Simulated scan of single mutants.
Amino acid sequence: MQKRHLPPLNALRTFEAAARHLHMGRAADELGVTHGAVSKQIVNLEDQLGFALFQRQGNRLALTDQGTRLLKASTTAFDQLGYAIARLEGEMIAGELRVSVPSAFAEKWLIPRLAKFTETAPGLKLSLLAANASYDPASEGRLGDTVDLAVRFGEPVWQDGTASLLSHVGSFPVCAPRLLADGPGLGAPADILRHTLLLDDPQGANWRRWLARAGLPQAEPARTIYFQDFNLLLAAAKQGLGLCLADQITAGEDLARGQLLRPFRQSIEHLGAYFIVLPALVTPAARAFADWLEAEMQMGQEWPAQQPDPDS
């Protein structure tokens, strides 16, 4: 249907209210009109469309298949229009914002900066959900209905969201200071092979890429341990269990405090990257938070590495 043939906006608004409540009387109360006016608008809309939107199931009102699809489309359209007008009017950021983030990203990068955002939105109810928690609705490539924005590390493939790049990741080996003092030492990249390598991917693809970058394309480490959670990976590295590949986003503070050291300058671009994922319907709060994340990340790109990469 072309835009010029759309039904009257008032009829669609009446339908959306009636379909949401599944009750003509409640829709009439919401819209400030009579029950008869709501019924008349629905009948006229059905006549114009050429199919039924509601059906009776005993004393209950139910939607037809076409009515269900039209309810979803009209609710999204009215909400998006309302959000757009709110942004034009400069409405204060308020309501609820539900953000799903990887736990390591939240702990190491987001939380130390979060007060900057919350101070600009005192009326906002913010909820942070851990992306690696079992209840996370954004797992397995889906955002779900209970998340307004997600930060994800990996590839930009989501079934019900739109991803935009937040930051590429430059990865380099890090270890605890005790690893340099005890054991076989780390005088040259080849010495890494005598240590345990801590993996953030089961096959060790990123470590193989780094070893090739350091001139060791066929190298095999003595031992490896895989960690599904990046926080556990960093904790193991800080305890001296081995070396892991880290980056300035999640390990910058530990490097600055000397809890982790960067023994070699070589770095690689990680196979994954950080993305902001937004649903089709973006609230003003989610848009403001996404803009703030991008601005903060751009500022963070100016952090100096502990040792410069010779090819940078």
Score class of each variant (00 low, 15 high):
Pro177Ile: 04
Ala219Trp: 08
Ala235Gly: 12
Cys244Ala: 15
Pro173Met: 10
Leu261Ile: 07
Leu241Gly: 00
Gly185His: 04
Lys238Pro: 00
Gln203Phe: 12
Gly183Ile: 05
Leu180Gln: 12
Gly204Ala: 11
Ala222Pro: 00
Gln239Asn: 13
Arg178Tyr: 01
Leu245Pro: 05
Gly240Lys: 00
Leu186Ile: 10
Asp229Arg: 07
Pro217Asn: 05
Ala222Gly: 07
Gly252Cys: 08
Gly185Ser: 07
Leu241Asp: 14
Leu233Ser: 06
Gln203Gly: 15
Trp210Pro: 06
Cys175Ser: 09
Ala214Leu: 06
Asp254Glu: 15
Pro184Phe: 06
Leu234Arg: 10
Asn206Arg: 03
Gln218Lys: 05
Asp200Glu: 13
Phe227Ile: 03
Leu241Arg: 14
Leu198Ile: 12
Leu198Ala: 03
Gln239Pro: 02
Leu260His: 03
Tyr226His: 15
Asp229Leu: 09
His195Thr: 09
Gly183Pro: 08
Pro177Phe: 09
Asp247Tyr: 10
Ala256Gln: 14
Arg213Gly: 03
Gln228Pro: 02
Leu216Ala: 07
Asn206Val: 06
Thr250Leu: 02
Thr196His: 08
Leu199Asn: 04
Leu255Asn: 05
Gly204Pro: 02
Ala214His: 06
Ala212Gly: 13
Gln203Cys: 07
Ala219Asn: 06
Ala190Gln: 14
Ala176Ile: 00
Gly242Leu: 04
Ala251Asp: 12
Asn231Glu: 13
Leu232Gln: 13
Leu232Ile: 01
Asp254Met: 10
Trp207His: 11
Ala205Val: 09
Leu197Glu: 06
Arg209Asp: 15
Cys244Phe: 09
Leu199His: 04
Phe230Thr: 11
Ala236Pro: 01
Leu199Ile: 06
Ala256Gly: 02
Thr224Met: 11
Arg223Leu: 11
Asp254Asn: 09
Ala188Trp: 04
Gly187Arg: 04
Pro184Ser: 08
Phe230Gln: 09
Phe227Leu: 06
